[in-house]
Every structure is written in structure tokens, then in C-alpha cells.
Amino acid sequence: MALTKADMVERLYDELGLNKREAKDIVEMFFDEVRSALAQGEEVKLSGFGNFQLRDKSERPGRNPKTGLVIPVSARRVVTFRAGQKLKSLVEGYEPTETN
């Protein structure tokens, strides 16, 4: 089971009284805006949740795991997520149970 955008829309509709259209728009726009900020090279800091940061990686030698051939992995920019203190403490005590 996983939380999806559809679940979020449903909860905004149930809990905040937004209509379905508004709830859907807000959820879509939330992720779109975070993504475009990152695409423009801007880091995103959501206090209480975490920070999305950008790291520039230089080119490195890589291998095709099937053929063993050495091919360079090109320089690239990647997104990393650093969870905030609040989220970290929320999840650190999670204990899986057999029903999960």
C-alpha cells in the first residue's frame, strides 16, 4: 500500500472541504512547483518535512553490468532529500509488525 496523489486529493476533499477540482489542482500544483524550482536550480526547504537539495556530480567511469564494458557516466545534477528533524523523529521509532 502506498500514499498517492489520488489519496491526497481525497483527504483534502474530506478534511478541508475543498471541492474535488480544487483539491486536485492544489495537489498537482504542489508537486509541479517543487519540481520546477529544482529544475531551475533552486533548492526547496519545507520546514518540518525536509529539504530537497541539488548536487553536481562529475563524470566517473562506469560499467555496463551485463557486458562488463567500461563506459563513462556523464557529469550530472541530482536531487537529494534531507529529512528534517521533525520527520526523522516521527519515523525512527517505526516498528514493522507482522500485519504490515
Binding site: 502506498a2 500514499l3 478541508l16 519545507l46 518540518g48 520527520l87 517505526y94
Partner: peptide, 21 residues
């Protein structure tokens, strides 16, 4: 709405549930 979205994601993770967007 923004605070609720973040809360929903945090609560899901706190119960071991994945978030998939």
C-alpha cells in the same frame, strides 16, 4: 492544503507506508 499534504506524507511514513508520486 500545503500543510495537510506534508502532514499526510509524514504520517504515511511514520506508519511505514510508502509515498508514491
Amino acid at each position: 492544503a500545503v500543510k495537510t499534504i506534508l502532514e499526510l506524507m509524514s504520517d504515511a511514513l511514520a506508519t511505514g507506508e510508502r509515498v508514491e508520486v
